[in-house]
Design a protein around this nucleic acid. Sequence first.
DNA 1: AAAATAATTTAGGCTCGCCTAAATTTTTAT
DNA 2: ATAAAAATTTAGGCGAGCCTAAATTATTTT
Lengths: 220, 220
Amino acid sequence: MSESTDNYLKTIYALGTVEGAAATTTALAEKLCTKASSVTDMLKKLNEKGLVKHTKYYGTSLTAKGKKQALQIVRKHRLWEFFLVEKLGFGWNEVHDIAEQLEHVESEMLIDKLDAYLNYPKYDPHGDPIPNKLGNMPAMRKTTSALNMKLGECYELVAVVDSSSQFLNHLKKIKLTLGSLIELKSKFAFDNSIQISINSTKLHLSQQVAANLIVQKKIK
Amino acid sequence: MSESTDNYLKTIYALGTVEGAAATTTALAEKLCTKASSVTDMLKKLNEKGLVKHTKYYGTSLTAKGKKQALQIVRKHRLWEFFLVEKLGFGWNEVHDIAEQLEHVESEMLIDKLDAYLNYPKYDPHGDPIPNKLGNMPAMRKTTSALNMKLGECYELVAVVDSSSQFLNHLKKIKLTLGSLIELKSKFAFDNSIQISINSTKLHLSQQVAANLIVQKKIK
DNA sequence: AAAATAATTTAGGCTCGCCTAAATTTTTAT
DNA sequence: ATAAAAATTTAGGCGAGCCTAAATTATTTT
């Protein structure tokens, strides 16, 4: 399987799992930084290979075979991200592009050994679950948007919705890192912004930022 | 730079360093598992890019720019091999094909961090020197072919000449591993075979095998 | 329901790295 | 020195994955 195929499957999977919906040609073109006509070309080929069900003018979804393969790519991507952060000391906002390349290395044994070396991690540095060898996702953490936090309760920042480097850099700048323990201090109904504290330092977050933070409730 | 370019430069370098000679089109075709005509095509392009000096019908050598790039690829390849063996527990005869893929990942920062993580190793698992960030090779170990060993002296197996998986598997079978401490017990002039001992177990090696072993003298 | 707009697909073409077959140059053998 | 053999290059083509422009189908507006 080519790298291009990998990228298509991964992207269809990512778009498809937002909800059960089929991926649209234009959306794929945008995510893959290519043109809609190129996407149509490629989908035709993936369709012939039985990786995708593409119905003209109606959209695309993965077949069982395609989904299985997509999950293996996701697995590889997330394991490499974990490696880069935990072992090589990269920041969690620096690893995406490198993992994007590493995920295309073909060797099942490599991934198995890497998985073992990393101690079978369940979540990558962005908080996303890592499928196991069989393609099973670990149970999602019971999480919620930071907008739903309750006053005085304690939470851990476990994931982000927007993982663009702009956003991740912003988080870095305001010293919010994955794993941070957060307590909600106040909510401002006027603009839906919130005030939180991390290790007793206070931080004010706009609604836009808070909406992109996924937290998990902690017992104090 | 494409992966194909990487492979050409690396191969020209490998053929070129055997002696000062220029690489021949046929030799490149064989090493790269492709046809001579394809090699000619590619050399023309590399020539235009200033990576290679190709003179029609006379052979090919690297320019300074090409050599610099080739050394970076060699560096990446050998660092990854070291990682695979030391950290992930691969056998030193299993890593070549995987490193072949990993070496094409583009990120200077990745290689720097990997180098640091591995503690700046000087030799890869096959005993070959790893160029540093600037492309400098560490001083070659003072080594010799196993055929030149002296009776009663002690040596360490530090490298192999033939690194085909057939040969490496043979070594595995007879339990000869890189780093093994070897003492020469006897030489048989008749067929140039030798008898050695490793940790007091004795082993008989044909000339063919011995010629492919590179050893370094040790003080007992 | 027709017209305007948006999404998608088709048609034709491009580059990269490869191929086969044929032509050319160099080397080897006689 | 010349003929035969081997190495190399040229010519013409192919598939993968991309592109632009034009045609087609869906959706939205009026």
